[in-house]
Every structure is written in C-alpha cells, then in structure tokens.
Computed example of a mutant assay.
Amino acid sequence: MSFNFKSFLVSVRRWLPLSRPLYPEISTAIAAAMEEQAAATQEITRNVQQVAEASNQVSEHIEGVSSVVTETDHAASNLLNAADVLVDEAQTLRREVDGFLSLVRAA
C-alpha cells in the first residue's frame, strides 16, 4: 500500500475548517507543553550545575586527601629514619656499656 499524497491533502482541506474552533485550545495546549518543556530544561540545567559543583568539591577533597597522604608518607619516612638512628645509637651504647662492664669486672 503506497501513500497517496493527494488524498492526504484532500483530507487535510476538509479537516482544517472543521478544526478551526479548536485552534485556541490547540494553541493553549502547545503553549502549556512549551512551558513544561522550558521548566524541565531549566530543572535539568540546575541539576547539571549541582552535579558539576559536587564534582568540583569531590575533586578538591581528593586533592586534600592526596596532600595529607603525601605529608603522612613523609612523616612516616622521617619517623622510620629516626628509629633507625635510635637503634644504631642503642647498639653503640650497648657495646660501650658491655666494654665498660668488662673493664670493671677485670679490675
């Protein structure tokens, strides 16, 4: 079955005069639909802006956490180095005390 454009136009010509009383209602319905569409678009825009702001905040928090992690890593490294120095000094002190006690015993 093919589309018959001529019969379509004939139908439209018959329908248009009959639908003229509905024009105000059709116009009102179209205007209402356009307003709803505009409101929905504005709501979507607000939501996208809120998501963008939240994403920026999350990014800032991640940067802050990353900075704290780096500082903690440096502090832990410094603490480990200090502990190594203390172990070395404790071993040196132990050797010196043992040597001193050996001298005392021998005397």
Rank of each mutant, 00 (worst) to 15 (best):
Q42D: 09
T41H: 14
R13N: 14
N56F: 05
R20K: 13
L9G: 08
V58W: 03
T92N: 08
V68N: 06
F8I: 07
V48M: 12
L18W: 03
A54P: 01
R94H: 07
N78P: 01
Q57K: 11
G99I: 02
A106I: 07
S19W: 05
D73T: 15
S77Q: 14
I62K: 12
A40Q: 13
E71V: 08
Q49A: 12
R14Y: 07
S59V: 03
H61K: 11
E53Y: 10
T70Y: 10
A31S: 06
A107F: 10
R94P: 00
A83N: 05
V87Q: 06
E71D: 12
P17D: 02
S66C: 01
F100P: 01
E71A: 12
S2K: 14
L22S: 14
Q37M: 13
E63F: 02
E60L: 11
L101I: 04
L86G: 01
V68P: 00
E43N: 04
D73L: 13
K6R: 09
R13M: 08
L103E: 14
A76C: 08
E53T: 07
A39R: 14
D84Y: 03
I62T: 13
V97M: 05
T28A: 15
H74C: 00
E60G: 03
R94L: 07
A107Q: 11
R14P: 01
E71S: 12
S59P: 01
N4Q: 14
V97F: 05
L22H: 11
A82Y: 09
S2Y: 08
I44P: 09
Q37A: 13
N47H: 13
T45Q: 12
V69T: 08
A83P: 01
V10L: 15
E60D: 09
S77I: 02
P17Q: 04
F3S: 05
L9M: 14
E53V: 07
I26N: 02
N78L: 08
E35V: 04
A90C: 03
D88T: 01
R46M: 13
S7L: 12
L9R: 07
Q57N: 13
V68C: 05
V10A: 15
V12F: 09
T72R: 04
Q42P: 00
L9E: 10
L93P: 00
A52D: 14
N56H: 05
V48C: 05
E43Y: 02
F3E: 13
V104Y: 03
I26A: 12
N81V: 07
S102M: 09
V58M: 06
P24F: 12
A31W: 00
E71C: 00
D84F: 03
V58A: 12
V10F: 10
R94M: 06
F8V: 08
D73H: 08
